Computed example of a mutant assay.
Amino acid sequence: MRALLCKQFGPPETLVVEDIAAPEIGPDDVRIDVQAAAVNFPDSLIIENKYQTKPELPFSPGGELAGVVSAVGDNVNHVAVGDDVIAFTTYGAFAEQVAAPADRVIPMPAGVDHVTASAFVMTYGTTYHALADRAALQSGESLLVLGASGGVGLAAIEIGKALGAHVIAAASSEDKLAVCREHGADETINYGEEDLKTAIKDRTGGRGVDVVYDPVGGPATEAALRGTAWRGRLLVIGFASGEIPKPPLNLALLKGCSIVGVFWGSFVKREPEANRKQLTQLFTWLGEGRLRPHVSATYPLARGGEAITLLASRRASGKVVIKPQD
């Protein structure tokens, strides 16, 4: 089978496509013919040895996928050969086949195509866990989404609206903000042209926002923290800007606000039953059309490095998906 391989740590252009042996499975594993695998920001980190998970070389990046079951281990009974499934693997998905632990494989919802399914679980799972669980976002509260035109940003807009929040989307260009409005944002901030803290105060009548969803990091974090309301919550999702911020903690003291970490991967491992309940809610909303994953580009396996570069450079809107069988 073909796989996009990281044989030495480095940028996406160092990745190569090679033929390797098909993966073997144990009694608790599922082998999947990968039809689509979404690109996520951690993929750009793991190939440069900058991610908390550090696989041995060589390996294939790619943490979430959708495909068709081709084999199951003796202890697996919730999926069968021929089933359409979604899997989240941390790495290994950018290949024609993957072996995944059965507890990380779930049946694909009816009526959803492979590309959409591959771009759903990690992005929307992270975001629902962040907003509903970690921030306890309530109907009528205000939500500021940074990097709002990206995959998790658009998910935050949609889930925020589903939870009844007033959503303010912040992004760096009018083209990106137009996509945010299409996905339900009530108001927008172009932080390429406006001072973020001032714009937050303007959009909230001086009160500040109740919840900040921050997958960006860098200078935007402190500006957003300064724009939070009393008892506000700033959600630390990631650092797409490449800079881990160090905001002054006296701001949290003065505002009585919280800085809340969100690590969905660890949540899935530690609280699997809670994760299953959250995914059930998400799949219900997906079936109702309240969630609409936005895939802006698809790439064949041979151009997988380009797909990672596009996402890592923050030029992509929504999700980018690799199709290993093309």
Rank of each mutant, 00 (worst) to 15 (best):
R233Q: 05
F88H: 08
K319Q: 06
T309N: 13
V216Y: 02
M108Y: 02
V295Q: 00
M122L: 15
S317C: 11
V145I: 11
G192Y: 04
A71L: 02
A178W: 04
W264K: 04
I20G: 01
K176P: 04
V295R: 00
S60G: 02
Q138V: 04
Q325T: 09
V105S: 00
V105D: 02
Q325F: 07
A148F: 05
V212R: 00
G10C: 09
A100T: 10
Q138G: 03
D214M: 05
A99H: 06
E48V: 07
A223P: 01
L286D: 03
P248E: 14
S313V: 07
I200D: 00
T123R: 04
G304C: 01
V81T: 15
D28Q: 13
E182H: 12
S296P: 11
A37K: 02
L291K: 08
A155T: 09
A171M: 08
D214L: 03
I322R: 01
W264H: 09
H183A: 08
V72Y: 02
W264M: 10
K197D: 11
A99N: 06
D83Y: 06
R134I: 00
D195C: 05
H78D: 08
A110N: 15
E182F: 07
L234N: 10
A110W: 10
M1Q: 12
S149C: 13
Q35S: 12
I168M: 08
T221S: 15
K50V: 11
D133P: 00
T89L: 06
I32A: 00
G111D: 09
V211T: 05
A224D: 01
Y299I: 10
T198W: 06
T228P: 01
L225A: 08
G218E: 05
I32L: 05
P27Y: 09
L249H: 13
V321L: 08
S296F: 10
P61T: 09
L249N: 14
T280S: 15
G153Y: 02
T127V: 13
E222Y: 07
A162M: 12
S44F: 03
P219M: 03
L225G: 03
R276W: 11
A252H: 13
F267T: 08
A224C: 11
T298W: 06
G242L: 10
D43F: 04
V262P: 01
R233L: 04
M122N: 12
N250R: 14
E13S: 14
F239T: 11
I168G: 03
E194D: 13
N275E: 15
A132T: 01
V30E: 03
R207W: 04
S313Y: 06
C180M: 11
Q52A: 13
A102E: 06
D103Q: 14
A100F: 00
L5A: 04
R314G: 10
K323W: 04
V17H: 07
V85I: 13
I200M: 02
R181N: 12
